[in-house]
């Protein structure tokens, strides 16, 4: 009986969590960043604080790049001439730098969370 009650509670939590995710997903803002000649365009992106955001990164170079942001704990390989989706946040206000790990000297940018 006790186990059953626990399972019910767990299921209820899962449903609540699922609903929470869905309602957030419906309103997720999309921000586009392009990679051209191993540079990010735009290299500075403004993002609202405490909001989940979907980054759509389009690599226009024929070479692959790896999007990496240490403060946001994000890392993803993006093949040449292709696009990738990375979800970030919700995070507190602040500046969150990111780089292209394959061309770290040129591919640099910052996500400004306000």
């Amino acid at each position: 009986m006790k186990l059953q009650a626990h399972i019910k509670l767990l299921l209820r939590w899962c449903v609540l969590l699922g609903m929470g995710c869905q309602s957030v997903a419906a309103a997720t803002p999309v921000i586009e960043i392009e990679i051209r000649d191993h540079l990010f365009f735009p290299s500075e992106v403004d993002v609202p604080a405490n909001t989940k955001v979907k980054l759509l990164i389009i690599n226009r170079d024929p070479t692959p790049e790896e999007f990496e942001s240490y403060p946001l704990n994000r890392e993803k390989v993006i093949s040449g001439n292709s696009k990738a989706v990375i979800f970030i946040g919700p995070v507190k206000a602040g500046d969150y730098p990111f780089i292209g790990e394959f061309y770290p000297t040129t591919a640099q940018g910052v996500i400004r969370v306000r």
Binding site: L17, C21, V24, A25, R74, K76, F87, G89, P90
Partner: peptide, 9 residues
């Protein structure tokens, strides 16, 4: 999984 939005932040 969080980066793919499969689990919440």
């Amino acid at each position: 999984l969080n980066q793919a939005d499969w689990i919440p932040s």
